[in-house]
Amino acid sequence: MDFLICIDDTDNLESIGTGKLAQILGRKLEELNLGIMGNITRHQLLIHPDIPYTSHNSSMCFDFETERKNWDKIIQICSDFLDTESAQGSDPGLCVASWDLISEEIVDFGFAAKQIVLKKEDAYNLAKKHNIHLSEHGGTGLGVVGALAGVGLRFSGKDGKFKSLKGTENLDGIYIVKDLYEKSQIECVRTLDGKVADEDDEVDLTVAFKVMLMDKKATLLVYADEDSQNSNITRWKAYDKKFLKKLERQEQTK
């Protein structure tokens, strides 16, 4: 059975970030033979003066394949982990949900958290209604809003950036799309307007790139490489992080 585990607001300016903490937590669960960790996604939430956050206001979610019987143990370990590892002054929240319990209402909550200021009570009421675990682990506990939102956004399959998607860590150079699919967990290479690259096309990955969660797939966004237009092979270039960050911020200010 697949679970989603999401944490939010665990850091301060001097500590390690929430993304790294999610990575450590997932590995810890694996080391305890409780299951297999999938990929981590980062979900950007609303940036607003009424919302306390460290530097980005984003939550970190990962999928975890495990057996139902491990549910209570996983929640206990995650809770203890946040109690001890979250940074001073942070307001950590934890959400653990099995895939079958997540509904459109949770997805809507996730997208609302990108647009409006939500209350802790809203998050708790919704989590209770759907039998989803939601808990706070210090400070004001406001991280529960982001934690629940992160689960909804990840479940939607149309929000978030992968943190070090498996198989992409050492990619640097030019690849055939088909090989890229084999070497990594990238599932789709496409342009911003939805044109999907052919499997025989080439992709230039010589920039610092990120893989996005779009249409329920790990998606690499690319644009046409104008230098290859006279060649027999179509070549695409991956958008760099800088461009993707701008895109994310444009969507936020829409």
């Binding site: 993304g19 790294k20 980005h56 992080k241």
Partner: peptide, 26 residues
């Protein structure tokens, strides 16, 4: 920034955008 995923550009570029003490606003 100690999280590579939060960097705005490649890590060799020294810019406030890549600094751990920058805090994004609207």
């Amino acid at each position: 920034d100690n999280d590579e995923d939060e960097l705005y550009t490649d890590e060799s570029t020294i810019t406030c955008y890549n600094c751990r003490y920058r805090r994004w606003l609207q």
